[in-house]
Design a protein around this nucleic acid. Structure first.
Lengths: 214, 214, 214, 214
DNA sequence: GATGAATGAGTGTTCATTCAT
DNA sequence: TATGAATGAACACTCATTCAT
């Protein structure tokens, strides 16, 4: 009887799968520990391939980080439009957008941490991602369209910069998802459970609508 | 006659001064590079003493980090009450609190980065700081007092959790100070200059007041 | 009518050209950085082909090095006879041979460095080059012929080993071309400019002639 | 009975000895394999301490290399004056200097290889050694004194640059010690044994004296 | 003849930390 | 109170080379 139960499954050459596998692991790892806190060695161990391939395909830790950020952005931004928000009326649409980080918190943690980590590095990597502005265009256009529709229906006051809406959405979303640890440590977890989150959600909807409505 | 007008505070044989010097350097360094990105060696080089003394006085990198966070919090929280906000009427007081991160952005960067770094570590260090809750009490009480005063004057609607105000203030403040890099890279710098900041400030005041006013 | 006067020698599907291209790059690289200091990767990048082809045609770094040395030797040794030295009388011939490294210094640097690098490796690669002795025969015969002619004319004393002449020529040539850096750092650059080189040349001619003349 | 035969000999702190031990190993290793061919790992293994201490004391491979070169130069240059050469008459003195590399070849190999390795690196490290010129002054002054004495006695012709003598000595010495491998591979080992070396020595004495004598 | 994919071992260097005085 | 010496483990990265097609 052979001591080896099964022959080593010789993985056929598959560059796309190898790259994707590395990226997936890297996103998780960088999100969990930040750039400086992550180790190429450990990332490699968690992949199905070796450290050597990370350098073969990406060139280095920084480039891998950049690729991971870009993929993370694409994944998240690609999903925002899936919610049928465009079909809603302007007020409902804004309410829906505000609600996301309060009702879908856990799913956003990974991405929020990636973004925070990048701000800790002064945004130096996103600045080097080609087409990063374009990548974010849909997110900007979504609120712009909603706002213009609201102006047309007479719900919203004209003359506002719709980027303010985007800013407000990102601000409260980021805070709720990413900054929970220090906030809880400082002020307790009153706003952390379902009721607290629902309360926050309602108030933030009220705040945003007050800003845009006439 | 001595050429030096004031006696230089000797740092040798002066434990308090040595410790403070280390803390000051550590706050800057951890704020700039995060916990994992900072090196005890480099911190030591930037102090007036040696690496050995960091271990002598603090015990290790994590303990130094904790001490740095605590000092940073004390410095910032100790100053919030200095603005004469208590003298203002409730509406003006909230407006003043909203305005801080838009009018005093640069001064808050260091602290905001410390806080973000700590959230990236899941708040594990603030959780170990004894009396951290108490340290933050003034910040909670300030908005609570303003809110209760506002309810008493009839400006604010009763029945709200004043922690929501604290949450809102921290959310927009943090975002404006810390998350500027990725926001600018994604959507341009329209909201970054003086006019943009003033615009944001006004709208956020409007939003917050809409939440609390009757 | 073609705009290109001469047809570009296609390197693809042209083994000889590909090999020659690799050899040319390798000679430069090994000469510049030595064997250990050179990287197959970098050599490959500087060629018109890929790293894989280096292994395809040469088998490995050592074999490429050996091929490079051999080519370098052939190129240099093939040129020594081109100077019309055989036509000169014995004294003039020796003077001409001494003069080469002082009047043609820069052109010899590449080869001198290859030779020095090989001595640093204890000559292990030249020892493996088949026909290396034969390759150097012309250089030995050249001075032997000159010497014998000089003996015949009565200019040179008989009974000398003409290899001494070869040794002397190589010694002063190598030193002037290869060892200039440490000599200059140690003793200044007095002997480095045109006058210094001419002075050296004259004295070395005098020294060699004193050895061979009766 | 204790499983450990002898207690680990706890080396007391002795920085000077540790540094010297590292330098000694480094000189041998760099001499044997050149800069690029040497590995800090392997150097460390051959010392009585660890790789970490190399970085602790020297900072890096390059700095260790520089220190090794400097020490090698000091050792060799410090010994040249020990031979009682100053007591000899000028002609005997030059003969003695010429003779060294032919009668003492093996002892010079290590140093000659260090120097060659440094020339392969274009002398970039000696250029950074502070006081390198001064380090070599004795070697320059020795031949200068001999030459001036020879002029005074009427043995040598006046008006020569004594640096030429130094150059000649170094050229033939270096070649005999360092370039033996390629020369032998190219032309055989006729000049390699005792008789060959004595022959070379005599001829080079003759050559040098012809240069300086009137 | 030609090539992209893949690799294990090794590179120089820095990490946070403890020892010994 | 203060400090230079010493350390093992980990760091990001590159090496020459072979596999598979």
């Amino acid at each position: 009887m052979n001591i080896q139960a099964a022959p080593v499954p010789r993985r056929k050459q598959n560059p796309a799968a190898v790259k994707q596998n590395i990226i997936d692991v890297a996103i998780k790892e960088f999100s969990a520990k930040g750039f400086a806190g992550s180790s190429v060695n450990i990332i490699a161990e968690k992949t199905d391939t070796s450290k050597r391939m990370i350098y073969y395909y990406f060139g280095g830790k920084s480039e891998l980080y950049r690729a991971a950020i870009e993929h993370a952005y694409r994944k998240v931004l690609g999903r925002e439009g899936d919610n049928g928000i465009e079909q809603l009326n302007p007020v409902q649409a804004l309410e829906a957008l505000v609600s996301i980080p309060f009702r879908n918190r856990e799913n956003l943690v990974c991405f929020a941490r990636i973004v925070a980590g990048e701000n800790l590095l002064f945004g130096e990597h996103v600045a080097q991602i080609e087409g990063f502005r374009e990548l974010n265009e849909p997110a900007r256009l979504l609120v712009q369209d909603i706002y213009q529709k609201g102006v047309a229906t007479g719900d919203f006051q004209p003359g506002l910069n719709p980027l303010i809406i985007r800013w407000f959405l990102n601000a409260i979303g980021t805070f709720n998802v990413f900054n929970q640890h220090t906030f809880k440590a400082a002020f307790g977890n009153e706003l952390d459970g379902p009721e607290g989150q629902e309360l926050l959600r309602q108030q933030m909807v009220k705040g945003l609508l007050a800003i845009v409505q006439r």
